[in-house]
Design a protein around this nucleic acid. Structure first.
Lengths: 352, 352
DNA sequence: TATCGTAAGTAAATCGTTTTACTAGATAGA
DNA sequence: TCTATCTAGTAAAACGATTTACTTACGATA
């Protein structure tokens, strides 16, 4: 029996605002302990009779009791929250990876905080710090250099740095280069131009390098004049447009372009069209990523597909597993996923 | 002077893990009170001599002390976190609004939790609940129906429901319809087809209605046979493609299409091309939104621009202001932003 | 009749901060 | 010398939950 009946407070159903466990307990004339044990279906609640349990559940329902997650997190020393760091949100690429991350986390009732670094050095340092202060349990970095010391596990999607404790999820780039160049070679292309990514993109070096290696292997000579580096920060096709313009200005003939990604491929196609060159009749253009826009561009893009959604999902899964099995922490430092050649309409047989 | 020298613990600099205020205080032989006052530069710390302050700052630096945000939030009864609810992340639309939200929040060191509802009823209820349990201070809903009772202020971007406490950020749709139809009329179009949005899109009804009203005003008759509703959940141009196919199948001539949005416009263009109709020579296509892809599609899209980034920023600003000035809570229930006609290459003079 | 076990709970510690109210000692003023 | 003020702090409560270790009353058993 409740010993302190006089302390009992009769709650008025609040139209707004929330009820705490303490208030609910006072209303019922019970201790917070009992309510907590019952509401969380703790095995320690066996000795509480069903009648009391029912009263508790009913009151919780009636007053719409919601446990305060912050209090719970503090006590449990867990936040059930990840941090995600992206270059910026609206580039198509990050959003698809994020989608994969979310799909896995949502199933476990985890949430995530997103922070964009916009390629700025200060944010590359500050964002992870702030995420860690907010007690995220793990960090997913997407196409982002790791410039911080972390107290939590990290998976870097498209990361290539070898950092202890950081797992990289990467594409099989060798295979990607092979798929792309074989496709172009089979179509009879011999003069192939290449768009190299911006310096800040994690994949820039490896992608370029594997393309050059594969070209050599396939006895395709890539003329240095036909290599253009993308310049600019915005995730707009404009950077591909500008680079393609420079290629054309160099006045060295080529029949195919291996673009850094779909966005720059789309920009390049615009430049070619303005120069009265038809894609794919005069020039074949090969993209990379297979973002949403690729399939419905005109012409639709032949591209090397990266399984972006799956890469995000894999990153989240890996981190969740690591949280559950800390022992296996450093088992696997790199996770590789496979690319796929998606043939559409932007590539065709080389002229003559 | 510290009275309990014997309790002092000498911390070993931890290679990993974090130091709590308590540990740091013990190491310095001071109370957590003093450290807290000093580190937070509280005015109550005036009586602490500079020398002691220096010791505190130095130790905090040395051991890389980071206050635990969860503990701080619990105490302050503030989370400095927003919740954002979107249909799904990778549709181009949500990402741009989100970008605007983030740009405002980041400046104030706020973060946000994102949840996608995928148009599923259960998630439309559960997601907001979970966000509120996690003590978000406000919610930004993007193109999402409000199906929950909220304990925190809400701004609904593209929301049209009249709910107490919910501020809607909406486009001036009347103006948008006017801009679009005047443009098409000026180009001589008389048979205009319309793509109506899916039922789940917040803007579907108002956009369709204002277009019909404006058409009447401008004496443009819109043939009911030339109205097609989009069907399907994915944010893919395919739904526009399918709808345009149906329009063509109806075999009623038209020279222009007012699409529901850019994504569906892109799909429709593909359908027209397959039917050997040139855009814009045979058919003009008018998009809506001005997503990134619009400018670089081929042909580039003439479209009614929604200032999506600004709408997100406005939503975040409004909520922050509301948190600071609770009195003005219900002052403004609707915030309207202006559309802009962006003329590009997908529209042209009507044939003959 | 003493004691044991069980049913039905509860008190208090804890998580890591912040903040209010306080204290002990030193100095200054009357 | 006595009081008031200042200096340099500190103790303890609070935020809202969870969890460990207890208590009390009652019925059954030896």
């Amino acid at each position: 029996m409740p010993s302190k009946k006089e302390k009992q407070i009769l709650l008025v159903k609040p139209a707004t605002g929330t009820v705490s466990l303490k208030e609910l307990a006072q209303h019922l004339g019970l201790s917070t302990t009992s309510l907590s044990l019952v509401l969380n279906r703790s095995p320690a609640a066996t000795s509480i009779p069903q009648e009391t349990k029912d009263r508790i559940f009913q009151a919780a329902e009636e007053f719409n009791y919601r446990p305060n997650y912050i209090a719970r997190s503090l006590r449990a020393q867990r936040s059930f929250t990840f941090g995600v760091i992206v270059p910026e949100l609206s580039d198509g690429y990050s959003a698809m990876v994020l989608n994969g991350v979310e799909s896995v986390l949502a199933r476990r009732d985890f949430f995530y905080l997103t922070a964009s670094h916009l390629h700025r050095d200060d944010l590359l340092e500050k964002n992870p710090q702030m995420l860690m202060e907010r007690q995220v349990e793990a960090i997913v970095a997407i196409d982002t250099p790791i410039r911080f010391h972390s107290t939590v596990p990290i998976v870097n999607v498209s990361g290539h740095e070898d950092i202890p404790g950081v797992t990289n999820v990467i594409l099989n780039h060798k295979k990607a280069a092979e798929l792309g160049l074989k496709h172009l070679k089979l179509l009879g292309h011999k003069q192939i131009a290449v768009l190299k990514g911006q310096a800040f993109s994690s994949d820039t070096d490896i992608r370029f390098q594997t393309i050059m290696e594969e070209a050599e292997k396939q006895k395709i000579r890539i003329d240095p004049v036909l290599i253009q580096q993308l310049e600019g920060e915005l995730p707009s096709p404009e950077i591909g447009y500008n680079a393609a313009k420079k290629l054309l200005a160099a006045n060295r003939p080529f029949t195919a372009l291996f673009a850094f990604n779909d966005v720059s491929a789309i920009g390049a196609i615009r430049a070619f069209r303005e120069a009265k060159m038809n894609v794919p009749k005069d020039i074949s253009v090969l993209g990379f990523d297979d973002i949403y826009a690729a399939a419905y561009h005109n012409p639709s893009l032949t591209t090397i597909r990266q399984p972006l959604f799956e890469m995000g999902a894999l990153a989240a899964k890996t981190l969740l597993r690591r949280l559950n099995e800390p022992s296996k922490a450093r088992q696997q430092e790199t996770l590789t996923v496979e690319p796929q050649l998606i043939v559409r309409q932007s590539t065709a047989k080389a002229k003559n």
